[in-house]
Amino acid sequence: MGGKSFIFFRNPRPDAVDPATGQRYQDVIVFWVASEADKQALVQDEASPFFTTAHFDGHPSVLLRAGRLGELTRKELAEVIQDAWLSRASARRASAWLSAHPPA
């Protein structure tokens, strides 16, 4: 992938805390997204397990607590992972992947 990250675990930070306890989340995963519109589509629904913080304003990524992964279906998680990879892959690699794996 050319040394680019597309998903990574984030160190606990003061901007992502449990509202009930004030404790920093220990299990935040960052997923890159292709655009601000994609980001908003994932975070604007209050029931969605995806979220963002002010630290990530203007950054093409969304956050997800590992403890909430079970709220996603396998298909949904696979799509988010694929989209994260595609957002960071070179045009050549992305094109080759999409040719071999057309969207359903």
Rank of each mutant, 00 (worst) to 15 (best):
Thr21Arg: 06
Leu69Gln: 03
Ala47Ile: 05
Ser95Phe: 10
Thr52Phe: 07
Glu76Val: 08
Arg10Ser: 12
Met1Asn: 01
Trp32Ala: 13
Asp57Val: 10
Phe50Gln: 05
Val62Thr: 07
Arg68Val: 02
Val28Gly: 04
Phe51Pro: 00
Val33Thr: 11
Leu64Ile: 14
Tyr25Gln: 01
Ala34Pro: 05
Arg74Ser: 09
Ala89Val: 13
Leu86Glu: 02
Arg24Asn: 08
Gly67Thr: 08
Ala47Phe: 03
Arg10Phe: 08
Glu36Thr: 13
Pro103Asp: 11
Arg93Asp: 15
Lys4Val: 12
Ser48Pro: 01
Ile81Cys: 02
Trp32Leu: 04
Val43Gly: 01
Phe51Ser: 05
Asp27Asn: 06
Ala104Ser: 06
Ala66Val: 10
Glu76Phe: 13
Gln26His: 11
Asp38Tyr: 06
Trp32Met: 03
Gly22Val: 07
Pro60His: 15
Ala47Pro: 04
Val33Ala: 02
Asp45Leu: 07
Glu79His: 11
Ala94Val: 14
Gly22His: 09
Val30Lys: 01
Val28Phe: 06
Asp83Asn: 15
Arg92Gly: 01
Val33Met: 04
Thr52Asn: 03
Gln23Arg: 15
Asp83Leu: 12
Leu77Thr: 02
Asn11Lys: 15
Arg13Met: 13
Trp32Tyr: 14
Gln26Phe: 05
Ala41Lys: 14
Trp97Leu: 10
Ala100Trp: 07
Ala54Lys: 14
Ala66Ile: 01
Arg68Leu: 14
Ala84Phe: 08
Arg13Val: 10
Glu76Lys: 11
Glu79Lys: 13
Arg10Leu: 14
Ala91Met: 09
Ser61Arg: 05
Gln44Asp: 11
Ser87Ile: 13
Thr52Trp: 07
Val30Trp: 02
Tyr25Trp: 15
Gly70Thr: 09
Ala89Lys: 02
Glu36His: 10
Gln44Val: 07
Val62Lys: 00
Ala96Leu: 13
Lys75Ser: 08
Arg24Gly: 03
Glu71Lys: 14
Ala94Lys: 13
Pro60Ile: 01
Thr53Tyr: 06
Glu79Ala: 14
Ala100Gly: 02
Phe6Met: 00
Ile29Ser: 01
Arg68Pro: 00
Thr21Ala: 07
Thr53Gln: 04
Gly70Tyr: 09
Pro60Lys: 13
Arg24Trp: 03
Ala91Phe: 08
Leu72Tyr: 08
Ala54Asp: 06
Lys4Leu: 10
Ser35Arg: 09
Arg13Gly: 06
